[in-house]
Simulated scan of single mutants.
Amino acid sequence: MTIEQAAPRDPQTQSQLLVRLFLSIGVLPILLVVALVLFSLMSDNFFTFNNIANVLRQTSYLTIVALGQMIVMLTAGFDLSVGSTLAVTSVTSALGMAAMAAGYPDQPWLAIAVGAPIGFLCGLAVGVVNGLGVALLGVSPFIVTLGMASVGFCAALYLTSGTPVRGIPYEFADTFGSGGFWGLKAPVWAALILAIAVYVLLNWTRLGRHFYAVGGNLKAAALSGVHTRLTLFMAYAVCAGLTSIAGLLLTARMETGEANIGTSMPLQSIAACVIAGVSLRGGTGNVPYVVLGAVFFGVVENGMNVSGTSSYLQIGVTGAILVFAAVADEFRRRLIGRRSL
């Protein structure tokens, strides 16, 4: 067959292929590719290894928190207290390490071994209270987590009087903040390891399947033998545990305990999940896309900084992207529903 004899491709067939591509991968990979191409054209420094490594480091904390937020959202809830969990973890771990370092100045790893678990457990306590309120008492996740957000920030500010906590051993910051290998810092490797762990939890364990079942249909899950209250409790506990790890890594990066960190983390973590296709109704979401969602917001923020975009415009762009992604995801979900009929 010659070129002249070949029939032109049907435009309708092309549109169907585009629709199938959109249904299969969603809007996030498309937005990420567009952002990478756009910012690489706007700045020659964007696509350098050092800048990409910096983006990955900046987004590692959001990635870890978003993984925890995803688990809660799978159960048709959300956690507005992740910011205060970061603050509580940072402050209490720094206070513990500073106190031990003052008493035993020649044993920095003893101070780290005492202070880090204190911070982790204090942050985990926020999730335990959230889980008990939602699972045992049946209180709305919005009310419980919003209340704990206020309580957590209040506790962090009270313990520090609003001033940074200093005296953290240098080894803690050097190892977990600026340390690393192969050009990537320790927080990046921690985020990668935790992403793999959460993927295994959700896809290869009974508890992970229960998270999806409870979010998909709570009554049906209960009738199927799922311990719904325990599952809900574990969702908030795991979220707080992951957030506490991010809080420790942030403390290592700043080399101080801060009571005001994490104020924007609730919105950012929910936005990263929503743009990754995690349903606000529960029961839908996957780990690779949540990681891409966190990386996408890091790419947008870094790209606008490198290109000299105004910080005021950055806030609006982030909000507009979130709205567009939510609308596109809802449109995609409706298309899938129509095709299944």
Rank of each mutant, 00 (worst) to 15 (best):
M1G: 13
Q5W: 01
D10V: 04
T13G: 01
L17A: 15
V19W: 12
S24K: 11
N51W: 01
L56G: 05
R57H: 10
V65W: 02
V72D: 02
M73D: 01
F78Q: 04
S81D: 03
T85Q: 05
L86F: 03
L86Y: 00
L86D: 04
A94R: 08
L95T: 02
L95E: 01
A98I: 06
M100L: 15
Y104C: 00
P105G: 12
P105T: 13
D106R: 12
L110M: 13
G115N: 11
V128L: 13
V129M: 05
L137M: 09
F142A: 03
I143G: 03
V144Q: 00
V144E: 06
L146F: 12
G147V: 05
M148P: 02
M148C: 03
A149V: 00
G152C: 09
A156K: 07
Y158G: 05
L159E: 03
S161I: 00
T163H: 14
V165Y: 06
F172V: 08
D174I: 00
W182R: 00
G183I: 12
A195K: 01
A195G: 05
V200G: 09
L201N: 02
L202Y: 00
F211H: 04
G215E: 07
N217A: 14
A220N: 04
A222S: 14
A222C: 01
A222N: 11
R229M: 12
F233S: 08
M234S: 15
M234F: 13
M234E: 10
Y236Q: 09
V238T: 14
V238I: 15
A240H: 07
L242R: 10
L242N: 09
T243V: 13
L250M: 15
T251L: 13
T251W: 11
M254T: 15
G262M: 11
G262I: 11
S264V: 14
P266D: 07
S269Q: 10
V278C: 11
T284H: 13
G285S: 11
L292Q: 06
A294D: 03
F297Q: 10
G298W: 12
G298Q: 07
V300L: 13
V300F: 13
V300H: 08
S307V: 11
S310Y: 00
I315V: 15
T318N: 14
V323E: 10
F324K: 02
F331A: 15
I336Y: 02
